[in-house]
C-alpha cells in the first residue's frame, strides 16, 4: 500500500469526492429531517389514533420496517415512474430513505410516549390541563429526552443507508470514490478511505448527540 500514491489520488479527485460527500450529507439531512417530521406523525397516530387510522399506520410502519432499504430504494425509483410519478434518482432515493426513517422514528416516538407512566397524564389532568396542554407540557418534554439516543442511532443508520443510493446512480460519497477506484485501481486503500470518512460523519453525529443528551439530562 503506497500511502503517498493514495493521498495523491485522493487529492487529484478532491472535487468529485467532496461533491460526493456533499451529496451524502444532503441526502442524509433531508431524509432525517423529513423522516423525523413524518415519523412523529406516525408515532402520534400509533399512540393516539383510533380504529382504521391506527390500523393503516400500523401496517405502514410494519411494512416499511420489514422491507430491506435496498428494495425500498429500487421500488421508489422504478415503480413510481411506472405509475407516472417522475422522480430523479436523487429525489427517489431521498423519498425512500424518508419513508424508512419515518417508520423507525414512528416506533421510537410510540415507545417513548407509552413508556411514560400513566400517573403523569393523571397528574396533568388533575390540575386541569387539556389533552394538548398535557402533551406539550408534560409528555413531549419527557418523550424527547427518551427518544434522543435512539434517534441519533437512527440518524447514523440513515447516513449508512445513503450509500445504497449509488445503485440507482446517485453520486454520493461511495460512488464518487468508486469512480476514482475505477481509474486508479487503488481499491483497498480508497475503500478504506471512504469507510473512514463515513466513520467521521457518524462519529460527529454521535458526539453531538451525546453533548445534547448531557445538556438536557435531568439532575438527580
Amino acid at each position: 500500500m503506497d500511502i503517498l500514491q493514495t493521498l495523491d489520488a485522493i487529492w487529484l479527485a478532491r472535487m468529485p469526492i467532496l461533491h460526493g460527500l456533499g451529496n451524502t450529507i444532503l441526502i442524509s439531512l433531508l431524509s432525517i429531517l423529513m423522516g423525523t417530521i413524518l415519523g412523529v406523525v406516525v408515532g402520534l397516530l400509533l399512540t393516539y389514533g383510533i380504529g382504521l387510522v391506527r390500523l393503516i399506520v400500523r401496517l405502514y410502519s410494519d411494512f416499511l420496517r420489514g422491507t430491506p432499504v435496498f428494495v425500498l430504494i429500487l421500488a421508489c425509483f422504478y415503480i413510481l415512474s411506472v405509475v407516472g410519478i417522475q422522480l430523479s434518482a436523487f429525489q427517489a432515493g431521498v423519498f425512500a430513505l424518508t419513508l424508512f426513517c419515518s417508520s423507525h422514528v414512528g416506533e421510537i416516538v410510540r415507545g417513548s410516549l407509552q413508556a411514560i407512566p400513566t400517573g403523569q397524564t393523571e397528574a396533568a389532568k388533575s390540575i386541569g390541563l387539556t389533552f394538548f396542554g398535557t402533551f406539550f407540557s408534560v409528555l413531549l418534554p419527557q418523550a424527547l429526552r427518551m427518544i434522543l439516543p435512539t434517534w441519533v442511532n437512527t440518524a447514523t443508520e440513515i447516513v449508512k443507508a445513503s450509500t445504497l443510493l449509488s445503485i440507482i446512480g446517485v453520486v454520493e460519497l461511495l460512488l464518487s470514490v468508486q469512480q476514482v477506484i475505477s481509474r486508479t485501481y487503488l481499491s483497498l486503500e480508497l475503500y478504506f478511505f471512504a469507510g473512514f470518512v463515513f466513520f467521521l460523519v457518524n462519529f460527529t453525529i454521535e458526539k453531538v448527540g451525546r453533548f445534547v443528551e448531557r445538556k438536557v439530562a435531568l439532575p438527580t
Binding site: G119, E122, A123, S137, P141, Q142, L218
Partner: peptide
C-alpha cells in the same frame, strides 16, 4: 394528591 406523587420529573 397521588400515592406515587406523580410530580413532573422534568
Amino acid at each position: 394528591a397521588f400515592q406515587h406523587f406523580n410530580l413532573f420529573p422534568h
